[in-house]
Amino acid sequence: LGLPKMEVFQEYYGLPPPPGAIGPFLRLNPGDIVELTKAEAEQNWWEGRNTSTNEIGWFPCNRVKPY
């Protein structure tokens, strides 16, 4: 089972920042694999864990694709 995984195809370094105070941003590099921890199809921002860095944070969902 486990959490859904997504592959990063466009880098994200915190700009634009996540809206409001939902949480810290998650740095993404192309090729990184992100395990989704909070993701809803109608939301533009998802939370996940970058398996390369083990960091957890928020990122724009348009930077990832199904793994």
Rank of each mutant, 00 (worst) to 15 (best):
L1H: 03
L1K: 15
L1Y: 05
G2I: 14
G2F: 14
G2C: 13
G2S: 14
G2N: 15
L3P: 06
L3A: 09
L3H: 05
P4Y: 15
P4L: 15
P4S: 15
K5V: 14
K5E: 13
M6H: 05
M6G: 07
M6D: 01
M6T: 07
M6Y: 12
M6V: 11
E7G: 03
E7A: 07
E7D: 02
E7M: 10
V8S: 05
V8K: 00
F9I: 15
Q10G: 05
Q10K: 09
Q10F: 12
Q10R: 12
E11N: 07
E11H: 13
Y12N: 02
Y12A: 01
Y13A: 15
G14D: 02
G14F: 03
L15C: 10
L15W: 10
L15R: 11
P16I: 02
P17H: 08
P17E: 11
P18N: 03
P18E: 03
P18T: 07
G20P: 10
G20V: 10
G20R: 13
A21N: 06
A21Q: 12
I22V: 15
G23N: 07
G23T: 12
P24L: 05
P24F: 09
F25R: 07
F25M: 11
L26V: 10
R27P: 09
L28F: 07
L28H: 00
N29Q: 05
N29R: 15
P30A: 12
P30N: 07
P30L: 14
P30F: 09
P30M: 13
G31V: 00
G31N: 05
D32F: 01
D32S: 03
D32N: 08
D32Q: 06
D32V: 03
I33A: 04
I33L: 13
V34R: 00
V34Q: 01
V34G: 01
V34C: 03
E35V: 12
E35Q: 10
E35S: 09
L36K: 03
T37G: 05
T37V: 10
K38L: 10
K38P: 07
A39K: 12
A39R: 13
A39I: 05
A39S: 13
E40P: 12
A41Q: 12
A41E: 14
A41N: 14
A41C: 14
A41W: 14
E42D: 13
E42P: 13
E42W: 10
Q43R: 11
Q43H: 07
N44P: 11
N44I: 10
N44R: 11
W45Q: 00
E47V: 07
E47T: 04
R49P: 00
N50F: 00
N50Q: 04
T51H: 11
S52P: 01
S52A: 11
S52E: 12
T53G: 03
T53I: 05
T53L: 05
E55N: 12
E55G: 06
E55W: 03
E55Y: 05
I56F: 05
G57M: 04
G57I: 03
G57H: 00
W58E: 00
W58I: 04
F59Y: 02
F59I: 02
F59T: 03
F59H: 02
F59W: 01
P60H: 01
P60G: 02
P60V: 01
P60N: 01
C61E: 13
C61S: 14
N62G: 12
N62P: 03
R63H: 12
V64R: 00
K65W: 05
K65M: 08
Y67A: 13
Y67K: 12
Y67H: 13
Y67I: 10
